[in-house]
Each structure stands twice: as C-alpha cells, then as structure tokens.
Design a protein around this nucleic acid. Structure first.
Length: 282
DNA sequence: AGTGACGCCTGGGAGC
DNA sequence: TGCTCCCAGGCGTCAC
C-alpha cells in the first residue's frame, strides 16, 4: 500500500543507491510490468542501456529517474511493487520482474511486484515533471503546493471529502490509509460533502494531511507486512502511530468509542463513530 | 467536464 | 486437510 511516505522513502534509497550510475544491462522477466511502455520490452531496455541515472524524483506516488538521454525511467509501485537496490548475487525474489545492472558492477536495481498493479516505463523527461505525469497534482509536502487553490477546488467539488482526498488530480500522495488518518485527526467523516465544508475546515484537513504525511515520512512509512519496504529492504515504523486505519473495534485514542469500519469503493474506511459523525442527509 | 464504476492481480486468511 | 471465497486497493479507462 505504498502512499507518499512509502514512495518518498523508496526515492531516498534510490537517490543514495543508483544516482550517478550507468546502466549496463536490463532484463524484463514479466512483460506486464512494462505494459505501459507501449513500444515493448526491447525498446524499454534499449532506452536504458548505456544511460546514466541523474537523480531520483517523485510526484505524488510516482517515481522517476532522469537519465542523461533526456528520458526518464518512470515507475509506479501500485499495490505491492518494490524497487530494491541489492547485491547482484542476492537470492532472486519470487516476483522479481525487472532487473537493471550497472557498469560499475555494484548493487543492482530490482523491480519486484506480487500483484503487478505497478510498472515501469521510459518516457521523455520534463520540467517540472515528465509530461506523462502532468495530470498529477503536487502533494502537500511540496513547497509549491497552493493551499488556497486547493481549498477552493475542494469546495467546488460535489463529492465526499474522502473521495476528494484520494483524487490525485486535486492533491497527490494520499491513499486509503493516510486519508483515514487525516480525516480522523480533522474529526471529519469521509462522506461529508465537499461543497458544504467551510474554508477553515478544509484548511484544517489539509494541515492534518500534511502533518500525518510528514510524520510518516520520518518514520520511514507504514509496513503491514513484507510487501512494503524501502529500497534497502527496511520496514517502516508508522503502523504503530495509526489511530483509525485497520483498528476496527479498538477504542478511539481520543474518546474511547470503538473504531468502526464501513465499506467504501470496494475497500474499507475506518473512523470514530463519536468524533467523526456521519453527515446528515441533505 | 465532472463524477463514479469497473477491471486488473496474487497471496493470506476465514469458513466449511 | 483442502477447497472456495473474500479481501487488500491505485489508477487508467470508459460511460453517463
């Protein structure tokens, strides 16, 4: 379940582990992992071979590695993707789909993905982001994120506030876990209609979203199992700081009422029935 | 144009 | 024990 804090943790590992290095060899073991590279796996490999990685960048939950060719190796971890920087002789992971070896013979980059919702592709780079990612909004930790523009955009929407938080064209980086945590902190039910929220309420929600993302980045993200680890294979520690997500039946840390779970878009929402009352019908 | 439903995937766990 | 079913859920696509 990589969201912004997990992806940012991976980005930091890639910056440390692969920036400045030249790609020597690329192998694609599972074509589905490069399905968004429409020219095919051979073209994908050809655009990487011999190229030097300049840095590791992120927009929302997308990562990209600008190359000296003007292209960028771009990726999304989906639900279960991992980008690992490991010794070349380390055991092959069961769901290892793409490998990049480097000219210096040091640690290699591996894309491992159990559920294959994630993937890699090579696209033209751009400023500030590859055109492929032009539709993804800035995230709340981006210094150029425009708070007031976000506040107005949310209030123009006609939807529930949780759906708005998950809409990557409005604000990026937030997924189901951090949306529930931000709503819990802001004491808002996710079904509250966006067009009836006051400006101060949206500002508060944004501030709480920013706080929870920032705290989670510092904890190295949230790991429920081995599916999310940093590029160095380390688990994040934020799970112990979750107040609502995944805590059905446990007491709300603020008021003690048992946390409830509700169906939401083929998944679950967790909230406090007392601190986050359901909106009244319009 | 904005909104929401659907399909893509696999492994772990519950239930029988 | 072994089978089936459900769940996790981000995002591109498409219909309304």
């Amino acid at each position: 379940m990589p969201e912004l804090p997990e992806v940012e943790t991976v980005r930091l590992g890639l910056q440390r582990g692969v920036a400045g290095r030249s790609v020597a060899e690329v192998s694609v073991g599972h074509p589905r992992s490069v399905r968004r590279h429409t020219a095919g796996a051979d073209d994908f490999a050809g655009r990487l071979r011999g190229r030097t990685v300049l840095s590791a960048q992120r927009r929302g939950k997308y990562l990209w590695l600008p190359l000296d060719s003007g292209d960028a190796l771009t990726g999304h971890l989906g639900m279960s993707g991992q980008l690992l920087v490991v010794p070349v002789d380390s055991p092959l992971q069961k769901h290892l789909h793409v490998r990049l070896r480097f000219a210096d013979g040091g640690r290699e980059l591996r894309f491992v993905d159990q559920r294959t919702f994630g993937g890699l592709l090579v696209v033209p780079d751009g400023d500030p982001v590859p055109p492929l990612l032009a539709h993804i909004a800035r995230d709340p930790l981006d210094p150029e994120f425009d708070d007031e523009r976000f506040v107005e955009a949310v209030r123009r929407r006609r939807t529930g506030v949780k759906r708005a938080l998950l809409d990557q064209t409005l604000v990026s980086g937030i997924g189901n876990i951090y949306a529930d945590e931000a709503l819990w902190r802001a004491q808002l039910h996710g079904e509250r209609p966006t067009d009836r929220l006051t400006r101060p309420a949206v500002r508060r929600l944004l501030a709480h979203s920013r706080d929870v993302l920032s705290e989670a980045v510092h904890a190295g993200g949230t790991s429920f199992d081995a599916l999310y680890v940093s590029a160095e294979g380390v688990s994040g520690l934020f799970e112990r700081s979750l107040n609502a997500y995944g805590r059905e039946g446990e007491p709300c840390p603020r008021c003690g009422a048992p946390v409830r779970r509700q169906a939401f878009m083929n998944r679950s929402s967790f909230s406090c029935p007392r601190c986050q009352p359901r909106p009244r019908a319009a």
